[in-house]
Amino acid sequence: MSRLFFREAIARAISEEMQRDPTIILMGQDIAEHGGSYAETRGLFERFGAARVRNTPVAEAVTVGLAAGAAAAGLRPLAFITYVDFLMIGLDPLVNYAAKLKFKSAAQLTAPMVVKATAGAKGQGPTHAQSLDSWLMNVPGITVLAPSTSGDAYGLLKTALRAPGPVVYIDHKRLFPLGGEVPDGETLVPVASAAIRREGRHLTIVAHSYMSLVTIEAAKLLAKEGIEAEVIDLRSVWPVDWDTLEASVRRTGHLLTVEEGQEVCGVGTEIAFVLQERLDGLRVARLGARRMPVSASPVLESYALPDAERVAASARRLLQRARQDDVAVTT
């Protein structure tokens, strides 16, 4: 194991994969000499050259379109979208072309491409801070990955760069300066493999990306009150590791979902619904951002988003409601 910053884990994963696979090319704003907006491509331009590490103009639509077409024609492009909010501008080639290509060509063409985007709030305001994971998981044909640790950034990005179809790999801005353990040897994190970050018997809390870290903090608060929360980090937003989730809620009987995006048609909403279908009597609650844009004002930003206190409060409410229901049933 080595201790690497999140951004270093990303650079290492890309570098190893580019060395292994000469068809990988990188495209995006400020990724060449500048080394990436988060210093996550530092050294790659110098190592692999201008043909494989290409700066693009501020033009997300053509960047994603280039990636989709190049993927269909034999390359394996990694397109960088500085803020996931700007992926909206490039959704047409991703959703209308890449995601449908294998299906519509009867498997004669595929789009093995990765869009690497950065989500989440860290003071950038309404159009630079959103979490749109649930939009993407709604589209058949797209894999959505979102790490919360350096090790998973490394392992998931390597998986993404070997995937047969389009992958959206989503970082969170608050993760880049954090450090973490990364295996020295090559270790891939497969899709649909959630990680149990903390074991517990009273309820299961499912989160992903930066909210996994927030949820671990919440679990510590709850533990002081004697509530043992099991924390699961999805890592793979789609496909979902249903088996790990189901096994956990069978043990705890209670599910709280936490995400930085919206609750309406959210990642957690989908997970809660499916697990309720699988497990009669499962009690669920969800927590996401308040239904408002994210502001650059620190007060309004934290008002909008879940934090450890709010996660803990949601967990308490869920358990309390469940106890009241039980009392009502027995009397």
Partner: peptide
């Protein structure tokens, strides 16, 4: 490489095919 039903949708894709 195909038709694309979205008007102008194939332009950037074609640039990607050309890049390859």
């Amino acid at each position: 490489y195909g038709a694309h039903g979205v008007v102008a949708g194939n332009l950037s894709v074609a640039a990607g095919v050309a890049l390859a």
